[in-house]
Design a protein around this nucleic acid. Sequence first.
DNA 1: TTAGGATTCG
Length: 785
Amino acid sequence: MPVQLLKIIKGKSETPLPSHLLKEDLIHLQEGFDHTNKYLQGIITHSYSLTKLGDGVDFFKIVLQDLDNLCLQINSINILIYGKMAKDCAKVIRHGDTVAVAGFKLAKSPTAEEDGRHGCHLELSEEAGSAIYVHKILGKCLNNILFPNFIVPFQSVAPKYVYTPLNHLKDGTIVNLYGVVKFFKPPYVSKGTDYCSVVTLVDPSNVKLTCTLFSGNVESLPKIYKVGDIVRFHRIKISEYNGQMQGITSGGFASLTFDGTVGAPVVPRTCSKVYTFMDEEQKTVEYLRIWAASNLSISGPAAKLSDVQPTLFFDLTCQLVGKAKVDGSSFLLKVWDGTKCSYPTWKVPVEARDLEGEKVLLHQLRNLTVDILVYDNHVQLAKSLKIGSFLRIYSIHTKQASADSEDVSQIEFHLHGGTCYGRGIRVLPESNPDVKQLKAFLESVDLADCQNMESMSSLELDGTFNSLSDLESHLERCQQLSVTVLTDHQDLSNTELKTILSSTAPQQYRIRAKLRTYKPQKLYQSIKLHCSKCNSLLEVPDGDDFDLILQGATVNAPNPELHNTSWYDSVMWTTQDEKQRKIAIHFVKCDEMLQQPEDTLLMIEGGTAKEVWKLTKRFKGVIPVRSTEDDLELLDLSAPFLLQGKIKYYGCKQCSTPKPIKSLSAIAAEQRPSWEPTEIAEVLGIELLRYVFIMKFTLVDGTGALNAYLFDYEKFFHIPASEILTNNFLQQKMQMTMNTLCPPGRKLDDLPWLECFIKSYNVRDAMKHQVYYQIFDTTVAEDVV
DNA sequence: TTAGGATTCG
């Protein structure tokens, strides 16, 4: 059985090689060594014509490449086959086959210098007891296991195409070629009339060719899904551009695309109804796959949502669950891949009625879907996508939503405008192996499980609804009922705005009106600090100011004489960096006992803002202080005097008269102090500033329009104003609420009604007198929130 | 004709 065809099943040969044979590496082949029980395995890269030697003996030469040692400079060897074995092999062996040879004789290669192959060649013949095992991945001829019953199965009747290697391209020619995709832009709408796709190919000559392909029919552009795919182009025009060859579509251009995975079925993707695809072509694809596998760096499996990091560009294979228009230049895609992003992800606020997709599914998957905002040129394609389709989105950019305190970092997903780096969207067919795998995985996801693991955030902020009935009542309310409700004075009847505008102040009214617009549009700008004593409104200080004040406070080193008193224990250390900063932390005791960290109030000297924030996560509260000669004292009141959770508490500079820190010992004497900010403020002589929403609503009712101020700590939005600046979820929730109250881009007729109480009041100064209006005893309806 | 690879405004 000197020549044997082995059937390959799932990458392993059905008939194993004889067990006494051991694999030999090319590098270990040396003259004078015993290779009796060794075999050499590799892929055939060349086969020459069968010839007869001068003495009439048949002769066949092939070149074998050792795939396991491709990194070596010399990784191929000539194999010379003599006699009957030469004839047999010539019928069976084609380039691209994998063969194993044993029982060979090693001899010096006379051509080594010129062909750059191994210094020895192998000689095989039946007489010498040689054996050659031929592995064919090819399906059709595998029924014939044993030579000589083997029948050559293919007889070509199609026109013979000539394929030009990429290093032999000439300007002005129209050629056929094969290549491995090294880069590509999925088809996109060009600025002209056609779709465009840019594809960069490479082949074993290691020459690159960038092709710009145009077609009015997107289907006729190559269906490339990932780098490493293999393409065959027919009738591509070669021209020189910027000193390099480039390819461009010419009349009659046609393409086939193949999965580049070694061992995958060789099935062309094409829109051509008729195409030649024979054994020879199959071999080429298989050869290119193997070449690419060892010569190109093709990145591993694509990233899943669970792998996503705050800042990167990546390709995502996913299913479309929902989509919505956002504005003229951006569009929202809600997608999932069955894995959960390990970071909180942003939710793009959109109107419920603009969100397309199965509401129940959107709700069920709310913890697994991510919002991808696509821009500009991608909007048109995104709009046309069908819900449920499988997509690959190329070069999605993730970015951290806020650089503020590190714990509210949400991840945003953007598909920016343009086509750089192949940025774009491609619909994958259900037959795609990655889609099949994804589908199976999605089906295996236990939705009950992922709903259990939902964080408190999602239910509140998702923007979808808990059930269909909720959704319906929401829609109904938006159309008919008021999106706000009154918390008192239900007995009053409505007054028209026209009447209010012509009446004297002060008075109170119940009104029914529509919110035509509001200010500020950037909702975080609506947060102010309010002093209820002097009634002043202040901007919330910038986080950087806090850092500067803390830095300023480090000028005074902690005074060790103030450490460890009856009501606090102190620790102090010096940082290891060149600044040698001294930090002191004073743990406030209660009833002379240290408490659990989560119940403990700290005072800190010399810390940075970051360090203070870290401490607030573990401890009940942190008070930044500095040392004087005889006591600790609060910092400048531009800095928060207390930090609890994510909230900074400020005092009014005008109304506060700070008392010595030891005043706190009065609370510390309690057994279980609650450390309420109001209580701490009071003993420290601080007039606490409260966070408040200040907004101006322009209300209309058909009889007139008036501006009414909303002044709200938390009642109107059901959101504490103190928490909104540090909580992106709440910001989105508020944005959703405002979008319901005043849906962007809608005509006046389609705006929802608001029922409100307003009161008018007079503001007079030397120059003028004006009547103002303020909303009160009104709240956003529960089912709108 | 278009694009001719070469990220990040939103």
